[in-house]
Design a protein around this nucleic acid. Structure first.
Length: 457
RNA sequence: GUGGGUGUAGCUCAGGGGCAGAGCGCCUGACUGUGGCUCAGGAGGUCGCGGGUUCGAAACCCGUCACCCACCCCA
């Protein structure tokens, strides 16, 4: 027996699952369209070299490779790979169609991506991302607008307590320098810092020590953390933006200083521009936010809710990625929502509207014998013409069984078509919830059912 | 990749060297043109897979695979 489970980390979506997914996707699409983002789709696979080297060392390992086909198959070499995210394919597309695409170019893309890592809670090998990106502008307005759009989408889905954390790649490097962390340990240290909200300052300090960092680095981290913590409005205010400058002013050189200042100003400008969007009160500066992908160059963002360990989504500015394909410098910034994460939270909290638990049809036509099949098809057509969703039960099973089937599927009405009805050109409509039934002219049944349906709310 | 746990009916699970079990679901009938409730009956299993111990293994031992949890990393 081959086994019937789908491949590990990949899922079948039964009708109920698909309805929930489409509900969420529909809302996200509508919101993004409202901001002038246009739809884009790209192939599941990319040339392997398109993906390699874009995600950092860890990312390279997680790319799902596709073996060469035909006579080269035996070599075991790969030339294609399933896409790892939607950002790199976007950069490729923008490089490829420079002449055709407007600038700035704003697009959204909701498609699956694949990662060859071990599945876990809310983690899959095949999962959907909902990306929005703006290309062609370095304005902080872009970051602010992305946060606003994402915030609108989450709000419309019914999320209440989400927060955006924002940081800047250049500030992060500077922070590491301030902690006297040697460059070769930067990646490791970033991972440790990123875990602050999970393991707390002591946990991070322990990680840093385990990572082979000296006591002075750990001390510098704890000191900085203390400063941030004691600053008024911590994590939420511009005040903490200043903390880094204060802690560092003594030992900095001018170049780094101006670079740092521009990063701080950039963050301030973004925060300023989110005012008036639905993201305004949700923006929080987090000096320890890191994010794993290596292509980010400027602001980085993440959106979280309290009851999910990971994030609902994240994004940032990647000004050099398109250039890796075209040689032309096209600045870009984007945000990606994880559909599966959103679904996990919404399912746990019961955030789906009751109307989603819909039946496959409004009416099911039931018949008693093979002779009823033809009339049933015609009546179904008439009912569909009245705007109803109609299915015909295909076999002349016992009528009780047919009604039971309809009831089990949540179909509210059964249109019974027996010998008498067929002769008279009528149809008996049974309301399953009310246990009532009434016989109508076939031409009038549709309107009657529609009325009963809207009456039901 | 590391550590732990679990694999028994379609689903959720009990059992613990001697006849393969329960609840739910499914099917049949009571009820031949009417569902939910009730009652009676029925179908459905290589006890994950391979080997070993034993008169005898679903159980004990070894291996293996799958899934779950934690770590790691991420959306």
């Amino acid at each position: 027996m081959p086994g019937t489970a789908p491949p590990s980390g990949m899922r079948d979506f039964l009708p109920e699952d698909v309805r929930r997914r489409e509900y969420v996707i529909g809302i996200i699409k509508r919101v993004y369209e409202r901001y002038g983002f246009e739809p884009l789709e790209t192939p599941a696979a990319e040339n392997l070299e398109t993906l390699l080297g874009k995600y950092g060392e860890e990312g390279n390992k997680l790319i799902f490779k596709i073996l060469r086909r035909g006579e080269h198959e035996a070599t075991g070499q790969a030339d294609l790979a399933l896409r790892y995210d939607l950002t790199v394919p976007l950069a490729r597309v923008v490089a490829q169609y420079q002449a055709k695409l407007p600038r700035p170019f704003k697009r959204y893309q909701i498609q699956p991506v694949w990662r060859a890592d071990r599945p876990g809670r809310g983690r899959f090998r095949e999962f959907y991302q909902c990306d929005v990106d703006s290309l062609g502008s370095t304005s902080p307005l872009v970051e602010a607008e992305l946060c606003g759009a994402v915030s609108d989408a989450l709000t419309e889905l019914g999320f209440k307590g989400f927060r955006f954390r924002i940081n800047h790649r250049r500030r992060l490097t500077r922070l590491l320098r301030a902690f006297r962390i040697p460059p070769e340990l930067h990646e490791r240290a970033l991972v440790a810092l990123d875990k602050l909200d999970k393991v707390g300052p002591d946990g991070v300090a322990a990680e840093l020590r385990n990572g082979g960092l000296g006591a002075d680095s750990v001390k510098a981290f704890l000191a900085f953390y203390g400063l941030v913590q004691t600053a008024p409005g911590t994590y939420g205010a511009d005040v903490s933006l200043l903390a880094l400058d204060m802690s560092e002013s003594a030992s900095s050189n001018t170049m780094a200083e101006s670079d740092e200042m521009s990063a701080a100003e950039n963050l301030r400008a973004i925060l300023e521009l989110t005012k008036g969007t639905s993201a305004e009160s949700r923006m929080h500066y987090d000096p320890f936010l890191a994010r794993g992908l290596s292509y980010y160059t400027g602001a980085i963002m993440e959106v979280n809710v309290a009851d999910l360990a990971g994030s609902l989504g994240g994004g940032g500015r990647y000004d050099n990625l398109v250039g890796m394909f075209s040689g032309q410098h096209i600045p870009a910034c984007g945000f990606s929502l994880g559909l599966e994460r959103i679904l996990v939270v919404m399912t746990e909290r019961g955030m789906f509207p009751p109307s989603l638990a819909t039946s496959p049809a409004d009416v099911m036509v039931a018949t008693f014998d093979a002779a009823g099949a033809g009339p049933a098809m015609r009546v179904a057509g008439v009912l569909r013409g009245a705007g109803l969703r109609v299915m015909v039960y295909p076999d002349p099973d016992r009528i009780g069984r047919q009604i039971k089937y309809a009831d089990g599927r949540g179909i509210p009405f059964v249109a019974i078509l027996g010998e008498d009805e067929i002769k008279a050109g009528t149809v008996t409509v049974k309301n399953l919830a009310r246990q009532t039934q009434r016989t109508y002219q076939q031409s009038a049944a549709g309107a009657a059912i529609r009325e009963a349906l809207t009456g039901r709310g």
